Amino acid sequence: MSAKSRQSLFRAKLAQQILSKAKGFTLIELLVVIVIVGVLSAIAIPQFLNQVRRSRAAEGQTALTAVSRASEAYRLDTSVYPDWENIDPEQCNRTERARPDYCGVKGDKFLNDPWVAITPIYKEPVFTDKPGSQTGVRITTEADTGKGPAYVNLGNKPIKCEIGLGDQATEVQQNSPYFVGRSCNVFDAD
Rank of each mutant, 00 (worst) to 15 (best):
A66H: 13
C184D: 11
L19A: 09
V186Q: 07
Q91T: 10
G146A: 10
V152M: 10
Q134H: 11
N153D: 12
S8Y: 06
A70P: 03
K123W: 00
F187S: 03
P131I: 08
R99L: 00
Q16C: 03
S68P: 12
P114F: 13
S41I: 13
N112Y: 14
I34T: 03
K123T: 00
E96F: 07
S183A: 11
N153K: 11
A117K: 14
S176V: 15
K157A: 07
A3I: 11
I139Q: 06
Q134P: 13
I118C: 03
A117T: 13
L64I: 09
D113T: 05
P120H: 01
V186F: 03
E59T: 15
C161L: 05
D190M: 09
G60I: 14
E171P: 13
P120L: 01
G38S: 03
L76D: 11
P82C: 07
A63D: 09
L27R: 09
R11L: 10
I43C: 04
I121N: 00
S5L: 07
Y102V: 05
Y151R: 05
A143V: 09
Q61K: 10
G136T: 12
V37Q: 06
F127T: 03
F187A: 06
E171Q: 15
I18Q: 08
E59R: 15
G146F: 10
P46G: 06
A57M: 14
S133R: 00
N86C: 00
Y102H: 12
A66G: 15
R97V: 04
Q173G: 11
L27H: 13
A189H: 15
A57S: 14
N50S: 04
A117W: 13
S68W: 07
I34C: 00
R6M: 13
Y151Q: 05
G104M: 07
W115C: 04
Q168R: 15
Q47I: 04
D88Q: 12
P158R: 01
G164C: 09
F179E: 14
F25V: 00
I18E: 11
R69S: 14
L154Y: 10
K21E: 11
D129K: 02
A15S: 05
S55P: 06
F187C: 08
N112C: 02
S8L: 06
W115D: 00
V52P: 06
D113A: 11
F10C: 00
R69E: 14
S20F: 07
P89K: 02
T141Q: 11
R6Q: 11
V137N: 00
D101R: 06
T26H: 04
C92F: 03
P158E: 02
W84G: 01
P158S: 03
T135Y: 00
A66M: 15
A57D: 13
D144V: 02
V35A: 04
A44I: 01
I87K: 01
K147H: 09
L40K: 04
I18K: 05
F10R: 10
P46D: 12
K157F: 08
Y122D: 03
A189N: 15
W84V: 13
E96L: 03
A189V: 15
G24F: 12
C92A: 09
K4S: 11
K160W: 13
L30P: 04
T62C: 12
S2H: 03
P131L: 02
